[in-house]
Design a protein around this nucleic acid. Structure first.
Lengths: 300, 300
DNA sequence: ATCATTCGTTCAGCTTAGCTTCACAATGCT
DNA sequence: AGCATTGTGAAGCTAAGCTGAACGAATGAT
């Protein structure tokens, strides 16, 4: 078992370039450093230092080891910091979140904001990422929380080894140009919109499949999807400027969208569920983040 | 400074749930474990264990520490493994590459293939990622090598702290439907293609800007970009099926594309440079990967 | 060319971290 | 109640790891 103390000495020698310098910096005699590094070489069966002039330089193997050493020592510092925070009764740690766009804006961002005051020792890292890519990352510990969506009638893959928590349910709205004749009524019959050009996400996405399915089942027509983008905000903008229609969940609309009409389909309700996924064993920090996300979601 | 040995004992106790079990497993007396953990508690100023019945259980702080401990111990194992490989004269380590799509297929993938035999101890992780996002990741050590592209006349941001290495230069080709009248000649005058619908990448990408600029400068017209995707293979398919045109670099074409005509613009040459970026201090493993990428690139 | 200085390493000697053994209190099974 | 099993503490021993002195090699000043 490699010893951290020896690695610290090695790193210091690498940083200062001389054994004496490292000894002075760490409050040891040069002899101690030399002996410990000799032990490290014996343990690993590798030459780590070579003399050059009256100084020493690390060998290639030494460089390799020093890289790992710095990483490990940083890890120790992180451990000490988190432990100190936990000991003081606060929840701490790094939590990495992945989310799709609209939940990112409406749920994740507000949650991060409130966590900054309720749990200042939790460092949240967030990225926009698709659900399908995120599940493996969750298992590999590269990710701690992921926020996913699931349209009615299009169940996602079930991950029995992961913990799923419901966040919110929302309605799918019909988005029309303000001056569209059908925009007068509160509920819009989809079958009247068979000739409308549509804006939707790229093929092979949940939203695109939902769009096509809803038009077929409730509207009885094949939609003419003329514009596509995976960016919901762009879809909204496309409706406003090109006069196309769109089917968008509540989260995208938020408080309301200027320049477009937001209606419900007359034929029936279509919904979307938003949920979060974590590993089954939650750290306190992950639990706190999950709670904050649930609270932010309940605002909608 | 926290000691790895104590952390190992803590982890073992956590895993087995009893001090005696951990002692048996590690070949110590139970007393030794107990004493070392007491020292750890004193050092950190935290209670890590609590008695439950005649066994012990970790406190919340203990759980936190044990999580860091396992990560650190894994790090030590990785260090030992890499050091052993290096000592045996082989180059080892984990190298993370980011690349854009076409270089991924034509350069990165073949390089990975050849590295598997020339350097079996290098573990290569590769992801498709855009250049602009990758430079910060490179600095943060989340990434080791990135492959980027640069169209003539559209220089990328200069990163003086990173090392840039030229990989290859390629021509931009005019891709036409096979039955297009201009496809008869070897070199196609762009000005004859002013009325052609075009397929190109999304707005605000290097390729899209190049496309518009080339049409304006060499062709003297504003292109009617009707189809857009950031996936070059989709663009190629769009040309084959919809009859649109495209401007694509050699790497996308590869050995040749069935069903379309690949020509050069008559008005002059447009090129694209492909390069790689690493941090200035390269580890042997990163250097080996860079060499393999350069070799794979020289095939084109 | 010579000498003083600085460097890294080695050896002897000492201190103490860390182990074992033994003893003891607390718990749970029969 | 009796007994095995658990975790912890005290005493004592071994060896890891430190200091200080001595030595050879390299460098820079004179």
């Amino acid at each position: 078992m490699m010893d951290l103390h020896r690695l610290r000495l090695l790193r210091e020698v690498h940083g200062r370039g001389t054994v004496h310098g490292a000894a002075r910096a760490l409050g040891y005699s040069p002899s101690a450093i030399s002996q410990q590094l000799a032990v490290l070489e014996r343990e690993t069966g590798t030459r780590l230092l070579e003399r050059v002039g009256r100084n020493v330089r690390l060998t290639a193997a030494g460089e390799v080891l020093v890289r790992h050493a710095t990483a490990l020592l940083e890890g120790v510092e992180a451990a000490e910091a988190e432990l100190a925070a936990v000991a003081a009764g606060r929840v701490a740690g790094v939590v990495r979140i992945a989310s799709f766009q609209s939940a990112f804006i409406r749920v994740v961002a507000p949650a991060i904001r409130s966590l900054a005051t309720t749990h200042p020792d939790i460092r949240v890292e967030a990225a926009e990422l698709e659900v399908e890519q995120a599940a493996p990352a969750l298992r590999l510990q590269q990710l701690d929380v992921m926020v996913g969506d699931e349209y009615d009638g299009q169940p996602r893959a079930v991950h029995t080894d992961l913990h799923r928590q419901h966040l919110l349910r929302e309605q799918i709205r019909v988005i029309l140009p303000e001056d569209h004749p059908e925009a007068a009524a509160d509920r819009v019959p989809l079958r009247q919109l068979a000739d409308l050009p549509w804006a939707a996400c790229q093929p092979a996405t949940g939203h695109r499949e939902m769009h096509v399915r809803v038009c077929r089942e409730l509207g009885g027509f094949e939609p003419d999807i003329r514009y596509s983008s995976d960016d919901f905000l762009i879809l909204l903008e496309l409706v406003r400027t090109t006069g196309a229609g769109a089917l968008l969940p509540d989260l995208v609309i938020g408080a309301g969208a200027p320049g477009v009409a937001v209606r419900l389909p007359a034929e029936g309700d279509v919904g979307r569920a938003v949920f979060l996924l974590t590993r089954r064993t939650r750290t306190p920090a992950v639990a706190a983040v999950a709670d904050a996300l649930a609270a932010a979601a309940s605002e909608h």
